[in-house]
Structure formats: structure tokens, C-alpha cells
Amino acid sequence: MRRLFPVTYETAAQPSGEAPGTDVTEREWELGELAEAYAYPAVSSPWLRANMVSTLDGAAQHEGRSQPISNAADMRIFGVLRGLADVVVVGAETVRQEGYRPARAREAFAARREAAGQGPAPAIAVVTASLGLDFSLPLFTSPLVPTLVLTGAAAPVERIAEAERAGATVVVAGDGTGVDPARAVSALGALGHTRLLTEGGPRLLGQFVAAGVLDEMCVTLSPMLAAGDAQRIAGGPSVPVPRRFELVSLLEEDGFLYGRYRRPGRQPE
């Protein structure tokens, strides 16, 4: 892996013949280095980060799953982002399609999480209006940290009771059956979760984008073409005016690009 932006070495150290500002160092990055590269900024209120992968032609999935368009380095970054988060926010459809399981504790992040006052692993927070989930799955029955279910005040009472019997913590973040994105972020913050990570799916990410609550976008550009009618990384209605984000860093390995973008105006404290 090599860093394309920002440049990390002095101009005097450039190899002969290379253009100014070109970092040609390519090597295997340790997990600690990736953790530093993707560290959350120092903020007191919730910071919502998204992580998605897209092909060159804009597909976020192939045959309903993201794994076929990913690679080993993308999965390492996926694991690092989870290792840094307080909670992973995911839509119910993605839970069903991707077969979500509880986040696990990783020794490589144990000291870092303890120093940050975090638990051994991030909680999974599932956004769902109907609570149409299989509460007998390990995600609900045997997580290291209790799974959260974000829903609306008018969600089916019997399904809420079933979720709670399975051990999940139900959080109301909307007046109707649906979840209000801003209220979801605020509710998670009230529970002490300030390092938020959403892994989609596209519909949920689109809701966060439309609500203007997304602080950071981590996106892997996969050097693949998928065609077909797969979803983009964000779905739903378009925003009135496209929102511009600022490039924070750009890494590359084996033709895959790993970009990190930040919302202008939301800066570390």
C-alpha cells in the first residue's frame, strides 16, 4: 500500500525522475499505521463516518453483496474502521443480505480501545421500521456488546418486545414507524457513542446524506466493471444541491483506491 495524499516525505528524498509530490513507497501497512491513518478526530459530539466500496461504473454490490467487488486490503481497512468505532450503524436489509454477525474483540485494538474508554468491541445498531428481523440470530442472542435496534415510536409493539426478549436494546429515534437520521445520531450520542460508523446499505447512507448528518465518507474505488442494475453506494431521493466534501487522504494498493473525505466546516476541536 502507498499513500498518494497527503505527501509524506520531503522533496529532497524523491527518487530521481519522479514528479514533485509523488510518494512511490509501496509496502505492507501494519494495523497500527492504518488505525492512525483513519483515527477519529477529537470531537465531543457524535462524528458519523461511512465506509463503502464502489466499482468504476458505480456499482455498490454484485448480485446483492459487496464482497465480490472488494479485496484483502479493503477488508483490512473495514476491520480497522470497526476497531476504532463505538457503534456500527447498518440498515436491516443489509443485515439480511450480508448475514451480519456481532462485532468481535480484536487483540490488536484492545489497548487502543481501553485508552479511549471504549468497550472491547463496537455495538451493532440496526435501523429498521418494521423490525422484520430474525431475532434468533447470533447478532441478537450472543453479541459481545448488546445489539441496538433503532426504530420509530409507532413500530409494532410485539416486535419490540421480541427484540428485547432476545437481548437487544431498542432505541426510539423517530415519531412514526421510520427512523429520523438526525435523531438516530443524537440518540446514539446520548448513549455515549461519539465514534459512529455506518456500513450501509445504500438506502440508509442516502438518508444520512439527505439529512446532512454525514461527517466523513470513506470509499474504496474498486478497479472493476460490473454493469447491471446494482445500487450505487447511496440511494434515495437526490439532495437539492450536491454536497462537496474535502479530500483528507488517499491510499492505493493493487489498483484499488482508498479515499477519505470530510464535510467542510466540521473540524476537529
Results as ranks from 00 to 15, higher is better:
residue 130 S to Y: 14
residue 148 L to R: 01
residue 172 V to S: 02
residue 185 V to A: 02
residue 162 E to D: 11
residue 191 L to Y: 08
residue 222 S to P: 00
residue 214 L to N: 01
residue 156 P to L: 02
residue 157 V to P: 07
residue 150 L to S: 02
residue 159 R to Q: 13
residue 188 L to W: 04
residue 129 A to W: 01
residue 210 A to T: 08
residue 149 V to Q: 00
residue 226 A to F: 07
residue 203 R to E: 13
residue 207 Q to T: 13
residue 184 A to E: 05
residue 180 D to R: 08
residue 169 T to D: 15
residue 232 R to E: 11
residue 126 V to H: 04
residue 222 S to Q: 01
residue 124 I to Y: 12
residue 173 A to P: 09
residue 156 P to F: 03
residue 141 T to E: 05
residue 202 P to H: 02
residue 151 T to M: 03
residue 127 V to R: 06
residue 149 V to G: 01
residue 180 D to H: 12
residue 195 R to P: 08
residue 152 G to I: 03
residue 176 G to V: 05
residue 229 D to V: 14
residue 146 P to T: 03
residue 157 V to H: 11
residue 196 L to V: 02
residue 139 L to E: 00
residue 226 A to K: 06
residue 153 A to M: 11
residue 155 A to Y: 10
residue 174 G to F: 01
residue 153 A to V: 14
residue 207 Q to N: 11
residue 139 L to Q: 05
residue 150 L to G: 00
residue 214 L to I: 11
residue 216 E to S: 03
residue 188 L to S: 04
residue 162 E to P: 05
residue 126 V to N: 04
residue 156 P to W: 05
residue 187 A to D: 02
residue 230 A to R: 04
residue 206 G to Q: 05
residue 171 V to I: 13
residue 232 R to A: 14
residue 149 V to C: 06
residue 173 A to E: 07
residue 153 A to H: 12
residue 194 T to G: 09
residue 128 T to W: 05
residue 194 T to W: 03
residue 231 Q to P: 15
residue 168 A to S: 11
residue 191 L to R: 11
residue 192 G to D: 03
residue 132 G to V: 15
residue 169 T to M: 12
residue 128 T to E: 07
residue 131 L to C: 10
residue 130 S to I: 14
residue 190 A to I: 12
residue 183 R to I: 13
residue 144 L to I: 15
residue 182 A to H: 08
residue 232 R to P: 14
residue 167 G to V: 15
residue 146 P to V: 04
residue 204 L to W: 02
residue 229 D to P: 07
residue 145 V to L: 12
residue 205 L to C: 12
residue 180 D to C: 10
residue 134 D to V: 12
residue 205 L to D: 10
residue 196 L to P: 00
residue 146 P to K: 04
residue 219 V to L: 12
residue 160 I to L: 11
residue 208 F to S: 06
residue 209 V to M: 05
residue 175 D to H: 10
residue 229 D to S: 15
residue 191 L to A: 13
